Computed example of a mutant assay.
Amino acid sequence: MQFSAGTDVTITISRELPRQDGVIRLLEMSDAYMASLYPAESNHLVDVSSLEGDAVSFFVVRRDGAVVGCGALVAAADGTAEMKRVFVDPAARGLKIGNLLMAKLEDHARESGFSAIRLETGISQPEAIGLYRRSGYVEIGPFGNYAADPLSIFMEKRLD
């Protein structure tokens, strides 16, 4: 998927392997950001090895070839997918990359036959929460292996 974000900027989103330098850099930035907001017990990040699993579809956003965003869908046994590791490089924010990435993940989920996408995010991320709400996600209770956490918000978007 390729988009033009102006006359001289090209944004691409494609399914790629997560173990590459640009992605590792983004995941490290995401880890540091989450650690600055939440205690370890409220951080539900998955590592790069987990992102390489058979049940994972990992997508990379590039701006003129450079990695500027990423996100994954993890298939669950109940026919839903969980969105994980959605992150956009702060230097690339304002280009609507989050919106483009969300649309790509949702398109992939529909094509894969998932009935819904679920996610967990933290209460101290108003920009992410706003993006999810604008994209049609609604709050739900904890799902999967998550326990209730006052620092977490659980959301879902039905695709059927």
Rank of each mutant, 00 (worst) to 15 (best):
K104W: 10
E127N: 09
I24W: 06
A75V: 06
I129L: 12
S14H: 09
E139F: 08
Q20R: 15
N99D: 15
S42G: 08
M34C: 10
S152R: 08
R118E: 13
F154R: 00
E127L: 09
A92I: 04
K96H: 14
R133Q: 12
S14P: 00
T12H: 04
K96G: 07
Y38D: 00
R93Q: 13
Y33D: 12
D64E: 04
T10Q: 12
E52D: 13
F59T: 00
G98I: 04
L37Y: 01
S42R: 07
K157A: 06
S115H: 12
R63M: 15
A103M: 08
K84S: 02
M83Q: 11
K157L: 05
A148I: 11
G79M: 06
V67K: 06
I153E: 00
K104R: 14
S135L: 03
G130F: 10
D47Y: 06
A35D: 13
S115G: 14
R85M: 10
N99Q: 15
K157G: 05
E120S: 03
A76M: 15
V138L: 13
E16I: 06
G113S: 06
D89P: 02
D21W: 11
I11L: 14
V61N: 04
G71N: 06
S152P: 09
E16P: 05
Y33C: 08
P150Y: 03
Y33I: 03
S50A: 14
T80K: 06
G136Y: 02
H108F: 12
N43S: 14
I153H: 01
G98N: 02
A91F: 03
D107W: 05
E111D: 14
I140C: 09
A103C: 04
G141N: 10
V67F: 04
G65R: 10
A75E: 11
E156C: 09
Q20E: 14
Y146H: 08
D89S: 12
R133S: 09
G144V: 07
A76D: 13
T12A: 07
Y33L: 12
R134T: 11
E111C: 12
N99Y: 12
E139L: 09
N43E: 15
Q125D: 08
R133C: 03
L26G: 01
G94W: 01
V9A: 11
V46M: 10
A32Q: 12
V74W: 07
L105T: 01
V46H: 02
I117T: 03
R25V: 14
A77F: 09
R15P: 01
E127I: 08
R19S: 14
C70E: 00
A40D: 15
R85Y: 02
L100M: 10
T80P: 06
L131I: 01
D149H: 02
R158N: 13
V60R: 03
R63Y: 06
M29N: 05
V68N: 05
L119Q: 03
R134N: 12
L159I: 04
N99T: 15
L100R: 09
E41I: 12
I24H: 08
G53Y: 08
D47R: 06
L159F: 04
A92M: 05
D47W: 03
A76V: 07
A55E: 15
